[in-house]
Amino acid sequence: MATFKFELVSPERMLASANVAMVVVPGAEGDFGVLPGHAPLMSTIRPGIIEVYATEGSSPSARYEIEGGFAEVTPEGLTILAEAVTAI
């Protein structure tokens, strides 16, 4: 099963770093899902909820509430820089 590296970083510490199957990000111009092999992308994030799917299942394994931030998809994986994050 294909996974990619997902990192959620706040200024104070690294909140999550794991290999996951899919992440749904509330982008500034609409939600987008990131799967392994996603094209490089930089996007700002609007306040919303990040859903992390550790395996290809039907329910998210982790959800984070985010008050805006910044997402970068590179060939290596997805990095989200966020200021205020709470796990829910």
């Binding site: 930089m42 996007s43 700002t44």
Partner: peptide
């Protein structure tokens, strides 16, 4: 050459 997509665009980001 990393053809990075920008959302919304470089300047706004």
């Amino acid at each position: 050459p990393a053809a990075i997509e920008y959302e919304p665009d470089e300047e706004s980001i």
